[in-house]
Design a protein around this nucleic acid. Sequence first.
DNA 1: CGGAATGTTGATTATATTCAACTGTTGTGG
DNA 2: CCACAACAGTTGAATATAATCAACATTCCG
Lengths: 253, 253
Amino acid sequence: MRASAHLGSEKAVEMTEVNGRLVEGVVANLPMFRQASRAHLADVTRHARAVHAPRGEIVCRRNDPMPGLYAVAFGLVKLSLGDDPGDEKVLRLVGPGETFGEAVAFLERPCPVNATALTDTLLVMIPSGPLFALIERDARFARSLIASLSQRMHALVADVEASALRTGLQRVAAYLESLTEPGPALGSANVRLPATKTVIAARLGVTKETFSRLLRELSDLGLVEVTRRDIALLDRDRLAAVARGAARAAAEA
Amino acid sequence: MRASAHLGSEKAVEMTEVNGRLVEGVVANLPMFRQASRAHLADVTRHARAVHAPRGEIVCRRNDPMPGLYAVAFGLVKLSLGDDPGDEKVLRLVGPGETFGEAVAFLERPCPVNATALTDTLLVMIPSGPLFALIERDARFARSLIASLSQRMHALVADVEASALRTGLQRVAAYLESLTEPGPALGSANVRLPATKTVIAARLGVTKETFSRLLRELSDLGLVEVTRRDIALLDRDRLAAVARGAARAAAEA
DNA sequence: CGGAATGTTGATTATATTCAACTGTTGTGG
DNA sequence: CCACAACAGTTGAATATAATCAACATTCCG
């Protein structure tokens, strides 16, 4: 950044401007900042910086210090627990327009998860400092932030519930349902897994072997058709029934 | 409450005053309100009300509307998932000075958990309205609230991690360790389970039968001695080793 | 094209659940 | 205060669910 002043080329300046606009665009579209004024937004974007992470790069290692919260501009980030890859639990997959690290940024604690870019990813990092300042000045922002944390919490609780008292088959069925567009459940739909089956398996709390077998089970029941990462949901009613626990009923129907 | 004016007895007035002081005392000692001014505190306590729940009473049923957040004055509340008792997952046990329902109060969504009083319990319910108002007026409160939500989140993530990649034995060992006073691990310590073994088992994500067997296993290893709800931790070093995954090492040592 | 990563399938095993029978504890009303 | 019913906990045997191990097939990229 500082170097660009020395180089002084129009291209470098242009790049900086482009970065600035990009950062601003990404930040302005976060739910958390939708209600913020232009001035407050500017204060935040001034301190934010873009971070590029090529596929496979670890954005944030477990126990690293967390400088602030991250927003995904494009790409996909995997938040996972557990050191050994191959025996990890994927907490969440973070896509464009989503954020991670809020809860950690405000506790000034080390990062509790590993964050890995699954594809080429552009992130915007917003340091904690300006966020704290904005909480002071804009109550609406504080409210949005609280709402954001609360929703995240809800999702986590739902996950805990699923892991604790649903079988693998139920979780897979529910997950496939969740990939469809929100709206009335039509007869069929096509979805695409957002990551490799190994990663999705870890997201669902099963091994890749088990995930493979469960998909085959749904396939044998005639509920889905799997073609690589593309999955056709052939009978959403029965799929939903399986998700709710009526495995036998679905098989008999 | 309104009736007390009509009855006009000194006793009724005294009771109201006692309730008022009690509510005030409980609210003032919540971490969330420690930094609030007297005036702000008064605004909140004015709208708060004490709720008594005898042992076994369901404070809040799954999918009920949530009027606000609850603070425990005395007693113990179980937050659990799953309809059928006997196959439930206990998310958290909430003791004196702790709160629950923040995340839900701010989303105006129905309650995602069942809240049951495990012993005679006194709660203070703080409606969402005054809380929203306080967020507007006191940024420090907003900050405390965010910190509170973040910590809750952290704890949940830690739980997810434990459930996902630790065995039952490891979780039991870690839980027993967590019941000791924070501080350096001395050679031995005595702890008391805060609830029945059935409830603690559900808290740890195992059945009561499995919990019983795991405690016996630790007992056979000479790491603990169980007398009803009282457990003597005989060798905290090896217990910690078991918690970290060195089951075999502990057995051999 | 070739090697690494990803995914599938089968056989075996580990972990914890379920079912069932029994014992101990607690709290309550006669 | 005791009897007794409801609850809490223990133990054993059989079972279920998913993990692990191992071999192989496929796909993705460089």
